[in-house]
Computed example of a mutant assay.
Amino acid sequence: MRETNMFKLKTTLGTNNICGPNLIRIRHEKGLSQRQLAKNLQIAGYDVDHHFIRRIENGERFVTDMELVALAKVLQVEITDLIDPTIPVAVQKDSL
């Protein structure tokens, strides 16, 4: 069997995204629970639930560019408000 090498991007903290901490902060500033934010995303046409929000905020979930756009639109913020460029990213090499 042939060995395949894959690279995974994670922060140096081991999280899968760099927007979780800012998502928490912005959501709290707007007085929204995870369920309320998920409901607002659903009303806007995005099929998500509160687990989607929780996993992003906990750094368990990778976030696509389309998801960043959706979050920014629903929260009425700029995409750059969600991204924290100060969180260092490290490339980890995994083999399958």
Results as ranks from 00 to 15, higher is better:
65 D>E: 15
65 D>H: 13
9 L>K: 01
45 G>M: 05
92 Q>G: 01
45 G>N: 10
30 K>W: 05
51 H>L: 11
11 T>Q: 07
77 V>Y: 01
66 M>K: 12
57 E>V: 12
15 T>Q: 15
66 M>A: 13
13 L>P: 00
13 L>H: 09
20 G>H: 04
28 H>V: 01
25 R>D: 06
65 D>W: 11
42 Q>R: 15
40 N>F: 08
82 L>M: 11
58 N>S: 13
37 L>H: 04
60 E>W: 09
46 Y>W: 13
57 E>A: 06
77 V>D: 02
35 R>A: 10
33 S>P: 01
29 E>H: 03
69 V>A: 12
4 T>Q: 09
25 R>G: 00
45 G>Y: 04
7 F>E: 15
46 Y>G: 00
76 Q>N: 15
11 T>K: 07
85 P>Q: 11
26 I>T: 03
38 A>Q: 01
26 I>C: 06
32 L>G: 01
24 I>R: 15
91 V>F: 05
58 N>P: 00
83 I>L: 14
63 V>H: 09
26 I>W: 02
2 R>N: 04
52 F>N: 10
63 V>F: 08
84 D>H: 10
33 S>Q: 03
85 P>C: 03
90 A>R: 05
67 E>F: 11
40 N>W: 01
84 D>G: 08
85 P>E: 14
67 E>Y: 13
29 E>I: 06
42 Q>G: 15
88 P>L: 08
59 G>A: 05
24 I>P: 00
88 P>R: 00
7 F>L: 08
50 H>M: 12
90 A>N: 01
57 E>R: 03
95 S>N: 05
1 M>D: 02
74 V>A: 03
57 E>K: 06
35 R>F: 04
82 L>P: 00
16 N>G: 02
69 V>H: 14
60 E>F: 07
44 A>G: 08
92 Q>P: 00
89 V>T: 12
89 V>W: 07
3 E>N: 07
81 D>C: 08
30 K>E: 01
74 V>K: 01
94 D>L: 09
76 Q>W: 00
64 T>D: 14
18 I>F: 02
31 G>I: 10
80 T>A: 10
19 C>K: 03
